[in-house]
Amino acid sequence: MKGFRLDRLPGLAVLSAPLVWAVLFLFIPYLIIFTYSFWLKKYPTFIPAFQFGNYAQIFADPQYYQVLLRTGKIALMVTALSLLLAYPFAYFLVFKVKSSRVRSLLYMAVIAPLWVSYLLRAYIWKTILGSEGVLNSFLVWTGILSAPTDLLLYNQFSMVVTLTYIFIPFMVMPIFTALEKIPRNLVEAAGDLGVTPWGALAKVIWPLSLPGVIAGATFTFCLTFGDFIAPMLVGGPDGVMIANVITSQYGAALNWPLGSALAVVLLIIVLIIIELSDRLQRKDRIGLG
């Protein structure tokens, strides 16, 4: 639209810094990763090439594709557990808590941990679940266990618990927002028409809150999928995730081409999920009119 706009010169001035930044620190770096993913490792560094060996290795070597599968599995479990906890919570908050003061206070209570260090939140569970940890010592102290168990930490269970703890606010936020947008009279109308509370939940509230659920699930899944700190802190040998492998390729293994190829795979998976979720949410929105 050619209408009243800033003069061309100020427009350029406004745009130049962000544009240069985006090209230099976003576009080019992504391009470099993409390029490296086709290069060859040659001790001690790597050389330019154009070959698909790194990708072939990822999908042929069980060491790599199994990590991918495991990462997907853990991310799914975290997403499911978060949804299971977050949805009822958000539902009760929106539809059962009468006072709006109490509601926003409880909502803030769930969101607040986001502001508290991510690292601390992972660390806390290490101190709680460890064999020398709070929970074990509590169980031994109270006589429930005779000796500390190491079943609690350094496995997929501890990973799922910790990651759920870290990322659950991202699930609560969009669901809460979606539920709050549902007009009360719609729920009352359902009640008026003889629909039971459970029926209203299934037939009215759940479908209307779906965009929020999708958004929350996308956040939680993607964040978990790319995490490498929690696995390092609370994951054991069977808790290694894709980002950890990338880290080690860039670190000790010194195989940047393979690391880059893994990063490209991770990038593509995340982008596909975001695109899918975008479409689903859009479809839902259209469905609602």
Binding site: I32, W256, L267, V270
Partner: peptide
């Protein structure tokens, strides 16, 4: 431009980390 700028919001931090590491090394 919009996609580029907003990408780090949804991308795992590790991608931003290694992509910029590549750039600085280069």
């Amino acid at each position: 431009f919009r996609r580029l700028v907003l990408l780090p919001l949804v991308l795992p931090g590790i991608i931003t980390g290694i992509s910029m590491l590549n750039l600085f090394k280069l």
